[in-house]
């Protein structure tokens, strides 16, 4: 059986700067995979290359056996890959409800959308209270919830989450990770990028450590969490 997502020898350069230098990993259906690493290690770039926002200079990305190279971002979504971008990227000029609608942009099954919307609002009850509100007026945590809920409305087979903990208070981070865990349990495969290695390794099955554009370590999340070098570098344990 081939993996749901295969990233093979991915190279990305911005101008003359090499952001990724040969990253390879695979995501099996049903898994939660996390990419951890410091700021600037290339985590976000990896996700952007997968969802078609940046063109790799070398290497390949295959989703469900088919190459995503040269496929426009909106067509990648249609194949079942949904990306909740870093910095939340909600449409601040649209209402919460409209943001959710846009998440289901490519779908035409009205009943299915209604059901998924209901489910997303059950996962994030705070959004239900704010449906008519302009999304720009939400708190940071609520915006992150909206970004995840919106990505779920595409009914993805694979969900890419970019730094969901960024800039949020610890209680909110805990709440969001609890929901991420729940989403995974319901059968959505997740590729999670995080600086917060502690939280990420708690929910993930497998972790990869990214340093200056290269994967330096890979293993079951629980082993990485117990690894001395990683504990020192990313978990703040001395």
């Amino acid at each position: 059986m081939t993996a749901l997502l295969e990233v093979d020898n991915l190279h990305v350069a911005y101008g003359g700067i090499q952001a990724l230098r040969g990253v390879s990993f695979a995501v099996e259906e049903g898994q939660v995979i996390t990419l951890i690493g410091a700021n600037g290690a290339g985590k976000t770039t990896t996700l952007r290359a997968i969802s078609g926002l940046v063109k790799p200079t070398q290497g390949n990305v295959r989703f469900a056996g088919k190459s995503l190279l040269g496929v426009a971002p909106h067509r990648i979504v249609a194949r079942g890959l949904s990306h909740a971008p870093e910095g939340r990227g909600i449409f601040a000029n649209l209402s919460v409800e409209e943001n959710l609608d846009i998440g289901a942009y490519l779908r035409t099954d009205k009943a299915g959308i209604a059901k998924d919307r209901e489910h997303a609002l059950t996962l994030f009850p705070r959004l239900r209270e704010r449906l008519q509100q302009n999304a720009g007026t939400l708190s940071g945590g609520e915006q992150q919830m909206l970004a995840i809920a919106r990505a779920l409305l595409a009914r993805p087979r694979l969900l890419l989450l970019d730094e969901p903990s960024l800039g949020l208070a610890p209680q909110i981070v805990a709440l969001i990770f609890q929901i991420v865990k729940q989403i995974a349990k319901e059968g959505t495969t997740i590729l999670l990028v995080e600086q917060n290695a502690h939280m990420a390794l708690k929910v993930a099955d497998v972790g990869h450590v990214l340093e200056v554009g290269t994967l330096v370590k890979t293993g079951p999340a629980s082993e990485l969490a117990a690894d001395d070098a990683i504990r020192k570098a990313y978990l703040g344990v001395h």
Partner: peptide, 24 residues
């Protein structure tokens, strides 16, 4: 309309709109 919603989404961010499946 859905088209108008997509227009407003593109207006806020082309990239995010594309990530939602909007043909920018």
């Amino acid at each position: 309309t859905k088209l108008g919603q997509a227009m407003r989404a593109v207006s806020w961010s082309e990239q995010t709109a594309a990530l939602m499946g909007v043909p920018v």
